[in-house]
Simulated scan of single mutants.
Amino acid sequence: MMKKVLITFILLLITLNGFANTINNIVVVDAYARETAKGQDVGAVYISLKNKGNKTVKFIGASTPIANTAQIHSMKMNNNISSMKHEQFLEVPANGELKLLPGESHIMLMGLKSPLIKGQTFPLNLHFEGLQDLKIEVPIKSINVDEMKDMKM
């Protein structure tokens, strides 16, 4: 009997967690940030946003209490030089996906109030044009050196 109650409880938590990361037909997949060094005042969030609706949605920004500013950035290569650009928005295509990946687009956290520590999480509010904000918890992962070798920089 206790085993059934425990299994039911775990399934309920998994279900509720899925609803917590979905709103307005937007589903958050694999959000994470990398740990930062002591004294480092910038960080980045990588995330995939799936749009299960039949209309394109504009992702217009993010906010978090752990940083002074959170901006959408894209990275471009020009003559073997990498540069970042602040974007006003990125589109999440209808029935499609927007991926913010290392070495590409990301959410830049500026003015971090404390280091991002592996194993912890922090709240992040995602803003969409004309839609309700989506509130998520972002896990902090260690820096993967092998992944960094493949970055487009």
Rank of each mutant, 00 (worst) to 15 (best):
K4V: 13
K4Q: 12
N17C: 06
M77L: 15
E97H: 02
K149D: 14
A20H: 06
V45E: 01
S105E: 11
I143S: 03
D150Q: 14
M153E: 02
I143T: 14
K76Y: 13
N144I: 00
V29I: 11
F128P: 01
A70T: 10
L49D: 03
H127L: 07
G96M: 04
F59E: 01
G96S: 05
G130N: 14
K4P: 06
S105P: 04
F9N: 04
Q132T: 12
L109D: 04
V28R: 11
T22V: 04
N80H: 09
Q88V: 08
N68R: 10
K152T: 08
K135M: 11
N95V: 08
P123H: 04
A37D: 07
K38V: 12
N17M: 04
A33C: 03
K76F: 08
K141M: 14
M75T: 10
K50V: 13
L101E: 03
N79A: 12
G130W: 12
V57D: 08
T69F: 09
L90Y: 14
M75N: 12
S105D: 06
K118N: 10
N125V: 09
M153A: 12
T56N: 15
L112C: 08
I143Y: 00
S142Y: 02
N80G: 15
K50A: 15
Y32V: 02
